[in-house]
């Protein structure tokens, strides 16, 4: 077990009339190097769960485990842990606070106490990684970038920590199709090339489905399904009842299969679908 929880329960504002049970008895574990997806409708507890994974929220009961050790057992430990597990919040660009892209990204390495030349190196690397030219963007004002660029800068600002685990809360919300595609390419590269463990949450399954190794499904604060992506995405009806639809191509493949055509349904991108349908046409003799 690399990262996971044991009977994690979280209640906001316990003991007041406003108490909300945001998580109840959630237990799961993920392996190092995995690409994991947390899906669930709005208000199902995704953000709450994610903030437990790097100790920003403390469990009301239960535990969060990282490499077998309970998260948050002591303050200094927690600080070190947060530097190993990077978290990109929902709409992270709303949290910019610097006057330049450079300072924004340098915040994390400066917190690590690195010297200025090392900080500079990390900023350049991080910008490069998200596909932005350091020279062109370092002195720009972060608030005056396009939505897609802001999101990338916000991600670079966490990459500069050089974490081993990267967690994203609804990373594609508010982005156009192109930025979304670029973002998924970036996530794939981080996971496959750099070997980072990547965890993302979303209430809307799209290209993300194609990338996932394993999936956690939350509903009203409970973990209702968990397992390898293929198994979860096969339970189309159950997902549908939770208000979660599969990506449109996958839906089409399911409908073709229901019509009796011999196609594979675990298909999440247009490209795969095209190949699968071609194959099927070759094989299929009505």
């Amino acid at each position: 077990m690399f990262i996971g929880t044991e009977k994690l329960t979280h209640t906001y504002m316990p003991g007041t009339p406003f108490a909300t049970e945001a998580l109840q008895d959630v237990s799961f574990n993920l392996q190092q190097g995995e690409f994991a997806l947390i899906i669930g409708p709005s208000g199902s507890g995704k953000s709450t769960l994610i903030q437990h994974l790097n100790g920003l929220l403390r469990p009301t009961s239960g535990r969060v485990l990282f490499e077998g050790i309970a998260v948050g057992s002591n303050k200094h430990e927690l600080l070190r842990l947060r530097r190993r597990i990077g978290l990109v919040f929902q709409i992270p660009e709303e949290q910019f606070f610097s006057e330049s892209v450079f300072d924004e990204i340098a915040f994390a390495p400066r917190n690590l106490g690195l010297d200025e030349s090392e900080v500079e190196k990390r900023v350049n690397e991080s910008l490069e990684k998200v596909g932005m030219q350091a020279e062109k963007f370092r002195n720009r004002h972060p608030f005056r970038l396009s939505a897609g660029q802001k999101r990338l800068v916000a991600i670079a600002a966490v990459l500069s920590l050089q974490p081993e685990v990267l967690i994203f809360d609804e990373p594609t919300v508010g982005l156009d199709a192109i930025s979304r595609k670029n973002l998924y390419n970036l996530l794939t590269a981080l996971n496959q090339k750099d070997g980072l463990t990547v965890i993302i949450s979303t209430h809307h399954l799209d290209q993300a489905a194609a990338l996932a190794d394993s999936v956690l499904v939350l509903n009203q604060g409970r973990l209702v399904m968990a397992g390898p992506a293929e198994n979860i995405f096969n339970k189309r009806k159950q997902l549908y009842e939770l208000g979660l639809t599969l990506p449109p191509v996958t839906e089409i493949m399911h409908e073709l299969a229901e019509k009796g055509l011999p196609v594979k349904t675990a298909v999440y991108t247009l490209q795969e679908a095209r190949g699968e349908i071609k194959n099927m046409k070759r094989r299929y003799k009505p």
């Binding site: 903030q51 303050k75 600080l79 919040f89 949290q95 606070f97 915040f107 917190n111």
Partner: peptide, 30 residues
């Protein structure tokens, strides 16, 4: 929210002297 975002990026509001703690709040206020 801001505090959490900065914590997630390695900020340290909790350890160190009072002076250090006060200084770490500046990027929050702006």
């Amino acid at each position: 929210r801001l505090m959490r975002a900065q914590l997630a990026r390695g900020a340290d509001f909790e350890t160190g002297s009072i002076f250090r703690k006060a200084r770490s709040l500046v990027p929050l206020i702006v």
